[in-house]
């Protein structure tokens, strides 16, 4: 596979990028900071099965005007990519988002609007070449409206619905859409939060995502137990959700 990863310098994206180069895939990294990108690319090169080159380009989800140039660069370097993985996004605790409305606005824009704009760009490109895979990291936080993740959860809920719709419409045309819904994963993003039971590691998530990429699964809960946890939470009636604190 020739994969473009947006967000591959950190957390789960970094783990996915590593898992892909280790099995011999070509990877192109998109990220915000050139020095960080360079170090990550070097790291991936040293981990790759062969002595693959990992090219990079700047791309910031806060700046949609750069999307085209970044994807052009990726296309050129990889000779036409067939897979795009998006793990980038912003996170803030409900408290922090309420205290800082400007940050809340940025988070909502990045996680929903700009991610969807980026996906649309990728969708057009992939459909033109007969299809491919678009794998986007949403979150279990978007499954129900919940007290501790009102804002963050709503951004991910919107994203999940968009990806679901896309998968229904374009799978026939060859575009496979994968919506990854990680539960609590111990990364820099969730630092400072008390890990609940079934907290996962980025490596666990990466292994699962790579499997989903090969199989084209439309929806992935990871780590595994979260599928059942969310199944229960999705079934809880409204009056129960109102009572409980999670």
């Amino acid at each position: 596979m020739k994969t473009v990863i947006l967000g591959g310098t950190r957390g789960m994206g970094r783990a996915v990028a590593r898992a892909l180069v280790e099995r011999g895939d070509s990877v192109f990294l998109l990220g915000r900071q050139s020095s960080d990108l360079e170090k990550c690319a070097k790291d991936l090169e040293h981990r790759s099965a062969g002595q693959a080159q990992v090219p990079t380009a700047i791309c910031d989800l806060e700046d949609p005007s750069g999307f085209d140039a970044a994807l052009d660069a990726a296309d050129e370097a990889l000779g036409g990519f067939d897979t795009v993985v998006i793990t980038a996004g912003l996170f803030g605790t409900q408290e922090k988002l309420e205290e800082d409305p400007e940050f809340a606005r940025r988070m909502l824009t990045v996680n929903f609007t700009n991610t969807v704009v980026f996906c649309e760009n990728v969708r057009r490109r992939l459909l033109e070449r007969g299809g491919g895979t678009l794998c986007v990291f949403s979150s279990v936080a978007g499954e129900r409206g919940r007290k501790p993740v009102v804002l963050y959860g709503s951004s991910k809920a919107g994203l999940s619905r968009y990806l679901e719709g896309l998968d229904h419409r374009d799978r026939e045309k060859g575009l496979v859409t994968i919506c990854v819904k990680p539960g609590f994963v111990k990364t820099g993003m969730t630092e400072g939060l008390e890990p609940p039971p079934f907290a996962g590691t980025p490596e666990q998530v990466a292994t699962r995502v790579v499997r989903a990429l090969s199989r084209g699964e439309p929806e992935v809960y990871t780590p595994g137990p979260w599928r059942f946890v969310m199944m229960v939470i999705r079934c809880l009636p409204r009056f129960v959700m109102r009572k409980v604190g999670f």
Partner: peptide, 9 residues
């Protein structure tokens, strides 16, 4: 532990 990149080999 999250700062675990191989920078040169």
């Amino acid at each position: 532990t999250l700062a675990d990149r191989i920078l040169d080999f």
